[in-house]
Simulated assay, not measured.
Amino acid sequence: MFAAPGPAQNAQLGRLLTAPIRIERATPVTTLPLEARGDILFVQASANGEAAEFIFDTGSPTVLSRQFADALGLEAVAQNTGRDANGTEITMDFAILETLSLGTAVFHDVPVLIHDFSDLDMGACLVSAGILGSELFPGSAWRIDTEAGQLSFAASLDEMAAFDPVATTHLYDFGYPHAPIVDYSVGDVSDKALFDTGNSAWVALFTEVAETVSVQQEILRESIVTGTGFEGESAGGRGEAGALTWFTLQNFRLDHDTLGPVRATTRAVPPTLVGAGVLSGYVVTMDYPGEQFLLEARSEPAPAREEPGYALALVGDAVEVAQLFDGSAAADAGLRLGDQVIALSGRSMVVSAGNSKCSIARSLIESFDASQGADLTIMRDGIASTISIPQH
């Protein structure tokens, strides 16, 4: 969800960012429930003894909501300016969290960023206490298993149950925020990617990589789908609307291990991402002590999801068509980018006393599947009409 911050502006904090976080382990392996709602992963944890729900996002440093940080009485020790995942410059406070308890493990003196999510359209409703991210990863091997609904970690891979990886590549740690960076290649292009569960795609190629001749030769031409819309919301809000492209790569490699055809998209801001989509087919292990990134095949891949051809999102207090793809059933039915949706298959999308903004946002994330077909009542130029989109 969020990109790494810039250089810290405080010497004390700088020392804390370079020192390893002390981890107190009551058991060799810590395992806790991992819940997927839509494409977002959630875990339960306790910060300074206060239990709360957090988003688990490998592509983000740990960020506490301003409201939660104030409730804990955290004081800022520095400010930091960096860029979010859409490339927007943003300034956040830094604080030190004395303890963060995850299952049977306790992390001590964790540097955390503090951000007011209330200005975001969707994020304000999805981020409760905050986001747990990558500065927690060094010193442990982490296994993410959405099939079992579990997040596990231990001091070494040897402590964990044996498994048979189908793909392995080097895992890099370039210092705070210790983001998981891996080697990948497509065609003749070899590069580094961020493993980012805050992005729903299997692969999101940096545009300049996707446009190289070698990568273009790996794209199945009949698989290309184009459209217009927003890439997503990050800490600084929503980026500009632009061209969207989805396609199938014939081969995507982690080091020398080929993963076969992979559905991919592009992104305007580097780096390339390996996103949460990989979890539909694999259990992912980030072995920081062993400097390995490993994929194990799930016992049953998640059912393939149809691409719906459009997406809805809150923009201010209104639900709008945020993405629309050419030649889709939605486009053929007459839907337009920016249409305001006031009802969705009979459910009101209008914010009111009995229909809060956050209940609408959660319904879009957790239960709405555009590929199943829907009746959208839209408001366009002051006139209400209903557009029926058939199931794929």
Rank of each mutant, 00 (worst) to 15 (best):
residue 1 M to C: 05
residue 2 F to V: 13
residue 2 F to T: 12
residue 4 A to W: 07
residue 6 G to N: 07
residue 7 P to S: 05
residue 11 A to C: 01
residue 11 A to P: 15
residue 12 Q to P: 04
residue 30 T to C: 10
residue 39 D to Y: 11
residue 40 I to W: 11
residue 44 Q to A: 08
residue 46 S to F: 07
residue 47 A to E: 10
residue 49 G to K: 14
residue 54 F to A: 05
residue 57 D to T: 04
residue 60 S to P: 13
residue 62 T to R: 14
residue 63 V to M: 03
residue 66 R to F: 11
residue 67 Q to L: 08
residue 72 L to K: 03
residue 76 A to S: 15
residue 76 A to K: 15
residue 79 Q to H: 15
residue 79 Q to W: 12
residue 96 I to M: 09
residue 100 L to G: 02
residue 105 A to I: 00
residue 105 A to H: 07
residue 111 P to C: 02
residue 121 D to N: 14
residue 122 M to L: 11
residue 123 G to S: 04
residue 123 G to Y: 01
residue 128 S to R: 15
residue 130 G to W: 04
residue 138 P to C: 04
residue 139 G to D: 02
residue 143 R to L: 04
residue 156 S to Y: 03
residue 157 L to H: 09
residue 157 L to E: 13
residue 157 L to N: 06
residue 159 E to Y: 11
residue 161 A to T: 10
residue 163 F to P: 06
residue 164 D to P: 07
residue 183 D to Q: 08
residue 183 D to T: 03
residue 185 S to Y: 11
residue 186 V to N: 11
residue 192 K to Y: 14
residue 193 A to T: 08
residue 195 F to K: 01
residue 198 G to Y: 11
residue 203 V to E: 03
residue 206 F to C: 01
residue 207 T to H: 12
residue 210 A to V: 06
residue 212 T to G: 04
residue 215 V to C: 06
residue 222 E to W: 13
residue 224 I to R: 14
residue 228 T to E: 11
residue 231 E to P: 07
residue 237 G to F: 07
residue 237 G to N: 15
residue 240 E to H: 12
residue 248 T to L: 09
residue 258 T to F: 12
residue 261 P to M: 01
residue 261 P to S: 00
residue 263 R to M: 08
residue 265 T to Y: 03
residue 265 T to G: 04
residue 266 T to V: 13
residue 270 P to Q: 10
residue 273 L to Q: 06
residue 276 A to E: 12
residue 277 G to V: 05
residue 282 Y to W: 12
residue 284 V to Y: 08
residue 288 Y to Q: 10
residue 302 A to H: 14
residue 306 E to H: 12
residue 310 Y to C: 01
residue 311 A to S: 13
residue 312 L to V: 08
residue 313 A to Q: 01
residue 316 G to D: 00
residue 316 G to T: 00
residue 317 D to T: 03
residue 320 E to R: 15
residue 320 E to S: 10
residue 324 L to F: 10
residue 324 L to N: 02
residue 327 G to A: 01
residue 330 A to V: 07
residue 335 L to A: 00
residue 340 Q to E: 14
residue 346 G to C: 09
residue 353 A to F: 06
residue 367 S to N: 09
residue 374 A to R: 12
residue 380 R to P: 01
residue 380 R to K: 04
residue 381 D to I: 00
residue 382 G to T: 10
residue 383 I to V: 14
residue 383 I to R: 15
residue 386 T to Q: 07
residue 388 S to A: 13
residue 388 S to V: 14
